[in-house]
Design a protein around this nucleic acid. Structure first.
Length: 479
RNA sequence: CGGGGCGUGGCGCAGUCCGGCUAGCGCGCUUGCUUUGGGAGCAAGAGGCCGUAGGUUCGAAUCCUAUCGCCCCGACCA
């Protein structure tokens, strides 16, 4: 390590993040501007994320498929809002095989168009519906300002694309997926989120309804962590996805799409990370526990290694994702800091004293340094460690939820709102007009995050214009 | 796209204003010995077309011209 200390979050949150992603070995900068290399440790984390989601999608009847990376440019012109939304960030292939192409090809920024095109071929009868397809892959958007995981030109995700025979069914699908996303964030990532509906201006290009889950980062900025859209028949009309219904009537299908991207890794970093480095939620951590042997002489080494080996094998057999750090070119002190930087939830230290006493030192990552260290018996260590992993998982969610809730303020006046969004979120009534929304954005840089499903019963007055308003919305500065 | 900064061993930099010997420093890397309960020490090594292309000059990392790239700050986005 070139520099030993990480920039602290309070000093410079953005710099803390940049250093951490590199030093925790999650990713590296690629030679192409705005692109990243996801390193094995980062990819292992992503695999844990994807395998949980994949399992849930399959359990709810979805199947995986793959569509091409290249999309004919003309496809983007078929849906007006969609083309306006994505035109600025398209990368376009103009040459192939040394020849200029007759029709330019866009590198997919998302796949609604090409999938819509295919669905129109596949959907002829009501019996062909629903179609519930998920594509796992990467997409490319020509971003001007990038940041590892949070916003890169190419990013990894899944995009679900479904087609249904009724509005109700399509909307149900949208909400069903959002519920899966919420469960993922709470149960796996330990990141609390609000489910809600996006405002008209924040809606996905081409959608009728966009729902999202919104999370608060340590710096109190909001991060949209997943989205689920209902398109109505917008894309069906643009791509002629039509079928004969039970009454032999030609009908447009109802479609949805939804996604969680590798950005969620950025959310986990910014919610749980501390000034010592990354903090991985145990359920997603590629390495849940690391065994660090400590010794001086060769005699000590022999004794310690024997016990450490045995404990490593026991934990592994018990299903813990465990690593044995037997490097002999770095000191144990270095290893402690190294694994803390990488966010491994539990560290098992075994030294000569432990061998004598039949103990190990257990250090929990959510309480860094010596404070989180306790000495426990070697017997039943597997269940001790598993119990501690569960405890850490729960504690991370609790801590993040308390932090979030303590930084959200109900506001009734515009002055209050302006003050609150400087360093937190405002929750207030809003008349849902574009004017009031853009006024807030221009004057405070805060945007509407979402109108949560979970709403107070009574009505109120818009925080900006005072008109009667049915629903409350979160205002916050966002990534 | 507008504003600011920077390109010199793997990484971080000094040297550039005022041209001059074999281009330095820290970290990392390699080897050896001693170390190891919170980021080890000593010794010996390896590693650089100074972003690129022209030009000025006896001589260019340094001066001139062009060009490429990167980072940071502002308008859009998962």
């Amino acid at each position: 390590m070139a520099e030993e200390k990480l920039t602290t979050r309070a000093e410079d949150f953005s710099e803390w993040y940049n250093q951490l992603v590199i030093r925790a070995d999650l990713a590296d900068y690629a030679p192409v501007r705005g692109c990243m290399v996801v390193k094995p440790y980062g990819w292992a984390l992503w695999e844990n994320i994807t395998s949980w989601l994949d399992k849930e999608f399959k359990a709810t009847g979805h199947v995986n498929a793959a569509f091409p990376t290249l999309i004919p440019m003309s496809f983007f012109e078929k849906e007006k809002d969609h083309v306006e939304g994505f035109a600025p960030e398209l990368a376009v292939v103009t040459h192939g095989g040394g020849q200029e192409l007759e029709e330019k090809l866009a590198v997919r920024p998302t796949s609604e168009t090409i999938i819509g095109h295919m669905y129109s071929k596949w959907v002829k009868s009501w019996r062909d519906l629903p179609i519930l397809i998920v594509q796992w892959g990467s997409v490319l958007r020509w971003e001007l300002r990038t940041k590892l995981f949070l916003r890169t030109a190419e990013f990894y995700w899944h995009e679900g694309h479904t087609a249904h025979s009724s509005e109700e069914e399509a909307k149900e699908e949208m909400y069903r997926i959002l519920d899966i996303y919420e469960r993922f964030c709470l149960e796996e990532a330990a990141v609390p989120v609000f489910k809600g509906t996006k405002s008209d201006t924040e809606r996905f290009a081409g959608a009728q309804i966009t729902t999202s889950i919104e999370a608060m980062m340590w710096d109190k900025r909001a991060l949209q962590s997943g989205t689920s859209h209902y398109f109505g028949d917008n894309f069906a009309k643009a791509f002629e996805i039509q079928y004969l219904d039970k009454n032999n009537k030609l009908t447009f299908a109802q479609t949805t799409s939804w996604a969680i991207s590798s950005r969620i890794i950025g959310a986990m970093i910014m919610v749980h990370g501390d000034d010592h480095g990354l903090v991985m939620p145990p359920r997603l951590a590629p390495i849940q526990a690391v065994v660090v042997p400590i010794f001086k002489s060769d005699e000590e080494k022999a004794k310690v290694m024997e016990v450490a080996d045995r404990i490593f094998a026991e934990l592994k057999a018990a299903g813990v994702r465990v690593k044995f750090d037997d490097r002999d070119n770095v000191s144990s002190g270095f290893k402690f800091n190294d694994w803390e930087m990488r966010g491994v939830p539990v560290r098992v230290e075994i030294g000569p004293k432990d061998v004598e006493k039949g103990t190990v030192a257990l250090a929990r990552r959510d309480r860094p340094g010596k404070e989180g260290k306790t000495f426990v018996p070697q017997t039943n260590l597997d269940s001790t460690v598993k119990g501690l992993l569960d405890e850490i998982q729960a504690s991370l969610l609790k801590r993040a939820t308390e932090y979030r809730d303590s930084n959200i303020h109900n506001v009734a006046t515009y002055d209050e709102l302006k003050e609150v969004v400087k360093d937190g979120w405002a929750f207030s009534y809003w008349c849902e007009s574009r004017e009031c929304e853009s006024k807030v954005k221009e004057e405070t840089k805060a945007t509407t995050r979402n109108i949560p499903f979970d709403q107070p019963k009574e009505e109120g007055a818009c925080v900006v214009c005072g008109k009667p308003s049915k629903r409350k919305v979160y205002f916050a500065k966002a990534y």
